[in-house]
Amino acid sequence: MKVKKKKSFFKKFVFTLLLSLVVLSIVTVFILRKQVKNVMVWEDQVTTAAKQYGIEEYSDVILAIIYTESKGDHVDLMQSSESKYGTRNRIFTSEESIESGVEHLAEVIKEADAQKCDIWTAVQAYNFGSKYINYVSDHGKKNTLEISETYSRDILAPLLGNKTQETYFYKHPFALMHNGGKLYKDGGNFFYAESVKWNLKLVKLFSKF
């Protein structure tokens, strides 16, 4: 009798678990699709700006940056206020955000190309600043998570005041898998290029339906 009860409980547990996973998957897909649709609203604006600054072939990367920065649900879509004005919350239209963000991205892509670094060096420099390109150029000319983490910890964070390698919790899957969820205070986001790379796949996938 006890064996039957245990089997029955186990079957119910497995069924409940599987049902929960299915529901969670459906909800996740719905949320991701909605977020991507919010981003794709700005596709024409992105294409126009990309053409203007000579980086039309990277229009999809720009859309992935928008997804990474705001999920298409913020006035400053590309969080470009700091790169343009040096402070946050100085951009009040999404059009200006795209214009400024694409201009900044074009600048770091041009510099990365000049130093024969890859596109993901430029994308990481969008977050770190253009001096990161010089660092990658001296360390193999290809962005990697190890290089970006070292730059964040040893160069950028101390430069901006964090000389003790102080960290804070960052609840992102990449961070949780890599180091339990840690970023260096004042050190930018060394997962940035990897996040954009992953989000580029999501944008391409969910923009199709």
Rank of each mutant, 00 (worst) to 15 (best):
G161D: 09
S25Q: 11
A112Y: 02
K204Q: 15
S80I: 00
E194F: 02
E56P: 06
G180W: 08
S148T: 12
S8G: 06
G161I: 09
K7W: 11
Y126G: 04
L160Q: 14
V196M: 06
L205R: 08
F190Q: 02
L21T: 11
S100C: 11
H178C: 06
Q52T: 13
S148N: 04
K171P: 06
E57K: 14
T28V: 15
V61S: 00
L21W: 05
D138I: 03
S8Q: 12
N127A: 10
G187W: 01
R153S: 10
I26Q: 11
K51P: 00
V41T: 12
K182R: 13
P158S: 09
L21I: 14
L202R: 03
W198D: 08
Q115C: 07
M40K: 11
S70H: 05
A175T: 05
T87A: 11
T28S: 15
F10Q: 11
A122P: 07
F206D: 01
K131E: 14
S83V: 13
W198Y: 15
A193G: 07
T164P: 04
D73I: 00
N134I: 09
S97L: 01
K163V: 15
A193P: 09
I91M: 01
D186F: 14
I91E: 00
G101C: 05
L202S: 04
Y151L: 03
V36G: 07
K208E: 13
I133F: 03
Y135P: 04
N127I: 03
V41I: 14
K110G: 07
L18V: 13
E107S: 13
A122Y: 08
L63S: 04
N162W: 02
G54S: 12
Y170M: 06
I155M: 07
V3I: 15
E43C: 04
K7V: 09
V46I: 15
V22W: 05
M177E: 13
T144H: 05
V75L: 01
T121K: 06
S83W: 02
P158H: 04
Y192P: 00
T150A: 12
T93Q: 07
A50W: 01
L63A: 06
I65T: 03
E194W: 04
L77P: 00
Q115P: 05
K110M: 09
V203S: 02
H178P: 01
E103S: 11
A112W: 02
G161R: 09
I147N: 14
E107C: 06
N162R: 05
Q79T: 04
G86F: 03
L159V: 07
K141H: 15
A175M: 10
A49V: 02
